[in-house]
Amino acid sequence: MSPAHNKSPAVAAALAALDAGGSPDNVTLRDAVRALLTDLARRAPGRSVEVRVPPYGAVQCVPGPRHTRGTPSNVVEMDGVTWIKVATGRLRWAEAVAAGKIKASGGRADLSPYLPDSPD
């Protein structure tokens, strides 16, 4: 986990809940998702990929052609728990995609270069 993740009380609380075999409460989950999405946008600045974690948040990121109208050609969507696991390295990108936990479309929709590459 990067230092930015360590500074987020919501991410720490969400990971603690997941490690204990439970689920984070909705407020913690929302805040953790948003903190990790913000961190992704900082590490992969751009507007060529839209990452959606409904209902908690979405960001545009990754260098490349900017999307301006309609449905973006590069979209990634997943649930909040999957996003927390992938963004913190608890679940590999490829494993989550193969399991159907991530829907990714478009040539730039592979976020693995911007995420931790191995589970804790």
Results as ranks from 00 to 15, higher is better:
Ser2Arg: 13
Ser2His: 14
Ser2Leu: 15
Asn6Ala: 09
Ala10Pro: 00
Val11Met: 08
Val11Gln: 06
Ala12Lys: 15
Ala12Gly: 15
Ala13Arg: 00
Ala13Trp: 00
Leu15Tyr: 01
Leu15Asn: 00
Ala16Asn: 11
Ala16Asp: 12
Ala17Asp: 01
Ala17Leu: 01
Asp19Ser: 00
Ala20Ile: 11
Ala20Asp: 12
Gly21Trp: 05
Gly22Asn: 13
Gly22Thr: 08
Gly22His: 05
Gly22Gln: 10
Ser23Val: 12
Asp25Thr: 00
Asp25Val: 01
Asn26Pro: 08
Thr28Lys: 14
Leu29Arg: 11
Arg30Gly: 08
Arg30Val: 03
Asp31Trp: 09
Ala32Pro: 05
Val33Ala: 13
Val33Glu: 06
Ala35Ser: 09
Leu36Cys: 02
Thr38Asp: 13
Asp39Ser: 05
Asp39Met: 06
Ala41Gly: 14
Ala41Glu: 15
Arg42Cys: 05
Pro45Ser: 06
Ser48Tyr: 03
Ser48Cys: 06
Ser48Val: 05
Ser48Ile: 04
Val49Cys: 01
Arg52Tyr: 04
Arg52Asp: 04
Pro55His: 00
Tyr56Ala: 07
Ala58Glu: 15
Ala58Gly: 12
Val59Met: 10
Val59Cys: 10
Pro63His: 14
Pro63Thr: 12
Gly64Pro: 02
Gly64Ala: 05
Pro65Arg: 11
His67Glu: 09
Thr68Ala: 14
Thr68Gln: 15
Gly70Met: 14
Pro72Val: 05
Pro72Gly: 06
Ser73Glu: 11
Ser73Thr: 14
Val75Ser: 02
Glu77Phe: 14
Met78Phe: 05
Met78Ile: 06
Gly80Ile: 03
Val81Gly: 05
Trp83Val: 09
Ile84Asn: 00
Ile84Val: 03
Ile84Asp: 01
Ile84Ser: 00
Lys85Phe: 07
Lys85Glu: 10
Val86Lys: 02
Thr88Ile: 01
Thr88Gly: 01
Thr88Lys: 01
Thr88Cys: 01
Arg90Pro: 06
Arg90Tyr: 13
Arg90His: 13
Leu91Gly: 02
Leu91Val: 02
Trp93Ala: 04
Ala94Arg: 15
Ala94Glu: 15
Ala94Met: 13
Ala96Ser: 05
Ala96Glu: 03
Ala96Leu: 06
Val97Glu: 07
Ala99Asn: 08
Ala99Glu: 13
Gly100Trp: 13
Gly100Met: 08
Lys101Ile: 07
Ile102Leu: 09
Ile102Glu: 06
Lys103Leu: 13
Ala104His: 03
Ala104Lys: 08
Asp110Pro: 08
Leu111Cys: 07
Pro116Arg: 12
Pro116Met: 09
Asp117Met: 06
Pro119His: 05
Pro119Phe: 10
Asp120Lys: 12
Asp120Ser: 12
Asp120Met: 12
